[in-house]
């Protein structure tokens, strides 16, 4: 029995648009995942299908080997914090915590209230009176306090100021270190999340274009900088996923691994950070 969430050949269409195109991916192994994609790439649809908010047109979802569909037991292992706020408008924050505990016995009320305190979230406030940022904070607190084996967070830092974002990442790392669960951070804010995640799944236009470790992804991309002529010569026969030119200088982003002995003279080799790699990969697909 594999301890994971598996999607197998999942297809989801909305009218003429194919939101998820034959998606096969696994989340497991007690890691922090980054589910990265541009706006509209299919991240939320993917997560919604895992949690039965939407139904796949084809394919299946398995949680620890069991089909997830209409399966209360499987759903109990997953907690998703989505962009849409599904709590009743008139429910107070404190009651949101208390009710979540009814449905998720592992939910820690103490932890939730202490986090609310740290974020200065007033537990007597009604859900409808929270700002965008504080709505995200409420949902993040619930997700982190749920202690679910699979905790899925969709755009968790939406509307959060820099201080709160920083606090949030710290809390994710602490919770992960404590519970050793599987956490999926789905976001289009690549840079911030880059060092927190261990594995990366990149989704673009409904298709999974990368699924592996962050280290693996970063090892597969590099850039060369030099005169346009030299760069073009070097780039021949290699997979160029993007480039920038300024005057007579050119920077080419290459998908692959550089040779052991480096690059020819006149060219400067450097690594590419996750965000830049992501941009180039998704741009390359567009062209």
């Amino acid at each position: 029995m594999k301890v994971s969430i598996e999607l197998k050949n999942v297809v989801k269409r909305f009218g003429k648009v194919t939101a998820l195109d034959n998606v096969t991916v696994t989340f497991g192994g007690n890691k922090i995942y980054g589910l990265l994609g541009r706006n509209g790439a299919g991240k939320t649809t993917l997560l919604s299908i895992i949690t039965s908010r939407l139904f796949a047109d084809e394919g299946e979802v398995l949680v620890d080997g069991e089909p997830a569909r209409e399966n209360d037991r499987a759903m109990r292992k997953i907690y998703m914090m989505g962009e849409a706020t599904l709590y009743p408008e008139n429910m107070r924050v404190g009651d949101v915590f208390r009710w979540t505990r009814e449905f998720y016995p592992e939910f820690s009320l103490d932890y939730a209230f202490s986090l609310a305190d740290s974020f200065k979230l007033d537990c007597r406030k009604k859900v409808k009176s929270l700002s965008t940022g504080y709505t995200s904070i409420l949902k993040n607190i619930v997700a982190l306090s749920s202690n679910a084996e699979y905790t899925l967070l969709d755009e968790p830092v939406l509307g959060l100021d820099a201080n709160h974002r920083d606090m949030f990442y710290r809390l994710v790392i602490e919770k992960y270190a404590e519970r050793q669960n599987t956490i999926v951070l789905s976001t289009h804010l690549i840079e911030e999340v880059s060092e927190v995640i261990e594995d990366v799944v990149i989704i673009d236009g409904g298709k999974i274009i990368f699924d592996g470790s962050r280290a693996d992804l970063l090892a597969h991309g590099y850039s060369v900088l030099g005169s346009t002529e030299l760069v073009n010569r070097y780039a021949e026969g290699r997979t160029v996923i993007g480039s920038e030119s300024l005057g007579g200088m050119k920077k080419a982003y290459i998908w692959g691994k550089p040779e052991q002995d480096g690059v020819p003279d006149g060219l400067e080799l450097s690594s590419v950070d996750l965000q830049r790699l992501f941009i180039q990969l998704t741009n390359a697909r567009q062209n």
């Binding site: 922090i32 990442y169 710290r170 790392i173 270190a177 060092e195």
Partner: peptide, 15 residues
């Protein structure tokens, strides 16, 4: 500890 380092640097504990 690994956790303290990871949390305060905002990096993955595996790193």
């Amino acid at each position: 500890s690994t956790t303290e380092i990871a949390a305060s640097c905002r990096i993955n504990p595996a790193t």
